[in-house]
Write a protein that binds this DNA or RNA. Sequence first.
DNA 1: CGACCATTTGATATGGATCAAGCGATGTGG
DNA 2: CCACATCGCTTGATCCATATCAAATGGTCG
Lengths: 222, 222
Amino acid sequence: MLQQARTIPTRQVPPTAVARQAFDSPLDMMGTQMRFGRNAEVYGEDEPAEYLYKVISGAVRTYKVLADGRRQIGAFYLPGDIFGLEAGDDHAFSAEAVSDSQVLVIKRSAAMDMAARDSTVARQLRTVTGRELQRAQEHVLLLIKSAQERVAGFLVEMARRAPGASTIQLAMSRQDIADYLGLTIETISRTLTQFEKSAAIALPSARQIEIRNRAALTRLNS
Amino acid sequence: MLQQARTIPTRQVPPTAVARQAFDSPLDMMGTQMRFGRNAEVYGEDEPAEYLYKVISGAVRTYKVLADGRRQIGAFYLPGDIFGLEAGDDHAFSAEAVSDSQVLVIKRSAAMDMAARDSTVARQLRTVTGRELQRAQEHVLLLIKSAQERVAGFLVEMARRAPGASTIQLAMSRQDIADYLGLTIETISRTLTQFEKSAAIALPSARQIEIRNRAALTRLNS
DNA sequence: CGACCATTTGATATGGATCAAGCGATGTGG
DNA sequence: CCACATCGCTTGATCCATATCAAATGGTCG
C-alpha cells in the first residue's frame, strides 16, 4: 500500500473567495493558505514542528508506519480542525491530505508569541492540545472494542463532526478507515453491509453513508 | 513491605530524603501529601477536576469502565508522575491507587494562578499535558499490535520508567496489565512464560521480571 | 470500450478469548 | 503450628471473531 509519489504542494497567495467561516480566531489572520492535492504530504514524521495547520476544506490524516509496514492513522482532521501542534519539537506523526484540501499554515513561533501577549490565543492553543488528548483517549477506548463497535463508533463520530446532513460524505477510503480502527478493509466492508442489512444505515454509494438508526449504532458503541 | 525484599545498601536513603527528591518544582510546595491504600479511589470519572496529583511513592492507575463492564486502564503513574490534569473541567477517567501510595495533592486553581505568574510553572503544566498526549498516542500504537508485541512493549516501557535496576518490580496485577493492553490475564500469563522460555526475561516471582534480552523484546515491539 | 482501482463477497486459517482446572503463596482460625 | 480457605497466577482444551487468501463486481477516467 505505497503512497503515490508526493505532489509538490503549491503555495498560493490568499485567493479571492476564502471559506470565511473558518477564520474565527486571531490566529487565522497569521496564516497562509495552501492547497494540497490528494495524498500530498503536509509534513513528515520527525520533521521539526515549525507550523500549525488548520483545515479549510477537504480532509487530512495523520499516521505512522510501523517497522513491518502496517500503517496506523492517528486522526482525521476536517474543516475547522487544527492539527500539527506537537508536544515536543518534532512531529510525532506524518500528515497527508486525504482528498484535495485547502489548509491554513501558521508559523508556530508566531502563534506562540501571540499566545504570550493574548491570553485568549493562549487559551485556544491549550484547548486544541486538550482536545487532541481527549481524541487520543477516545481512540484508545475504540481500539479495545469489537469490530462492530469500532465501525459504529467511527460512524457516530463522523456523523457528529460532519455538518448537519443525515448522509455522511466520507472523504477517506476503506483502507483509511481500516488503518484508523486497527481492522482490515474486508472487515470494514462486511461490517458496513451488515449494518445495512440490519437497517441501521443505508449505503447509496461507497463514500456516502446515511445513518438510519443512530440509536442502534450508539447502542453497539457500548 | 513490598520493597523490603530487595536491599541495596549503597542506594538506600532515609525516607525523608526519598520524599524530598520528588519535590522538584515550585508546584510541589503547594501540595498536601495524602496516603491512599491499595485500590482506594483517588477520584472518580465525571467528578470536577479540582486537583492535580503527583505520585510520591506507590503507583496509581486511571481507568474507565465501559457499559458492559469491561475496564480499560488509561495509564499507570509511578513516583514522580503527575496526573489528574484534564482537558475539560471534569475528570475523563477514574483514578485508584494500585498499591499503598503517597500522593501529593495540589489545588488546580492555585496551580493555574501560579502558572499565570510564573512562566516556568506554565511551561511545566504544558509539558505534563504534552507528555500525556504522547502517552495516549503510544498507547494507541500498542493496541493495534499482536499480544506478544503489546506485552513486550509494556515491559520495555516499565523498564524505561523504573529506576535503573535490571529487575522490574511490578506494582500491578496481571488483570491490571491485561486491562491496560486490551488482552486477558491468560494471554498475559502465557506470553510472559513464552518470553521466559525464549530467555528474553526471567520470572523470579510473579511481580518481579528480569529483562535478560532487551533487544529481543524491542525487536518484537516493532 | 477497456483498464484500473476501490469495494464487496466468499472460503479458510489463526490468534487470542473463553471455559475449566490446577497450583503456589498468603493469611486466618482452631 | 497446622489445616484450610482465598487469591492471584499458570496451564490446558476448545471456540470464535477477525485476518488472510482469493475472486467477482462496480465505478471512474482515459
